[in-house]
Simulated scan of single mutants.
Amino acid sequence: ETELDPESISPKKLTWEKEEIKESEAALSETKIETEAIEEMSTSALNDSAEKITVVATAYSRNQPSLTNITAMGIDLSKNSQVIAVDPTVIPLGTKVYVEGYGEAIAGDTGSAIIGNRVDLHMESIDASFAWGIQEVELTIID
């Protein structure tokens, strides 16, 4: 786990260099299709009075060797994968959110590097999580 200072991260999209680029692109396009369908359903539910914050978003997968299926809040990621890790002093655990480019999710996990306006988005595919890299996105609090 790498400690990153949110102040030193530029908002450009960064991606990890990987040898299996074709495989990772295929995984990413599958994720994009799912995300677009979720976004179409969710966008109409968002209103202008909702609280929006800009966050630095990285991604992780329960399938990484060091991780388990169960989040800090007890959510089983194999049954509910649309979960983000948050700093609970910024976004309380259990909050429903909408993340630009990711979709609707629940703030159901924490992580030692997730401090302040940083979130970590759970993705089933390790390749898709690497392909996401680090992005600055808008997060909307749904409830």
Score class of each variant (00 low, 15 high):
Ser125Glu: 01
Ile70Asn: 12
Ser42Pro: 02
Glu19Val: 07
Gly101Cys: 06
Gly116Leu: 13
Glu40His: 07
Ser29Ile: 08
Tyr60Gln: 01
Met73Asn: 12
Leu14Phe: 09
Lys52Asp: 01
Asp127Phe: 01
Ile38Trp: 02
His122Lys: 06
Ala27Trp: 00
Gly74Asp: 13
Ala107His: 07
Glu20Asp: 14
Thr31Val: 13
Ser112Pro: 05
Asp127Gly: 05
Ala57Thr: 13
Gln64Tyr: 11
Thr15Ser: 07
Ser44Phe: 09
Asp87Ile: 08
Ser49Gly: 03
Ala128Arg: 00
Thr58Cys: 01
Ile91Cys: 11
Thr31Trp: 10
Glu23Arg: 03
Ala59Gly: 09
Asp87Lys: 03
Pro65Arg: 12
Ser44Asp: 07
Ser44His: 10
Ser42Tyr: 03
Lys52Asn: 04
Thr31His: 05
Pro65His: 06
Val99Ile: 13
Ser125Phe: 00
Ile70Phe: 11
Ser24Met: 00
Leu121Ile: 15
Glu17Gly: 07
Ser61His: 07
Ile91Lys: 04
Ser24Glu: 01
Ile38Ser: 08
Lys52Tyr: 02
Val83Gly: 00
Thr89Asp: 12
Thr89Lys: 13
Gln82Thr: 12
Glu20Ser: 07
Glu40Met: 07
Glu51Thr: 11
Leu28Asp: 00
Trp16Ala: 13
Arg62Cys: 06
Glu25Phe: 01
Thr15Ile: 15
Val119Met: 08
Glu25Ser: 06
Glu40Asn: 12
Asp120Ala: 05
Gln82Pro: 00
Ala50Asp: 15
Arg62His: 13
Arg118Lys: 15
Val97Phe: 05
Ala59Phe: 10
Leu46Trp: 03
Ile38Gln: 12
Ile114Pro: 06
Lys32Leu: 12
Gly101Ser: 07
Lys32Glu: 10
Lys96Ile: 10
Ala107Glu: 02
Lys96Thr: 10
Met123Gln: 02
Leu77Arg: 03
Lys13Arg: 09
Met41Val: 08
Ala57Ile: 10
Glu124Trp: 00
Ile114Glu: 03
Ile75Lys: 10
Ala45Phe: 09
Thr31Lys: 09
Ile114Ser: 01
Gly101Val: 11
Val90Ser: 01
Arg118Ile: 14
Ala57Phe: 10
Gly116Trp: 15
Thr35Met: 15
Ser61Ile: 13
Ser44Thr: 12
Val55Cys: 06
Ile91Asn: 00
Lys79Cys: 04
Ile33Lys: 13
Val86Phe: 05
Gln64Glu: 15
Glu19Thr: 14
Thr68Ser: 15
Asn47Trp: 03
Glu39Cys: 04
Leu93Lys: 10
Lys18Ser: 03
Val99Phe: 10
Tyr102Met: 05
Ala27Met: 03
Val83Trp: 02
Ala59Arg: 02
Lys18Tyr: 01
Trp16Val: 15
Leu93Arg: 09
Ser49Met: 09
Val56Met: 11
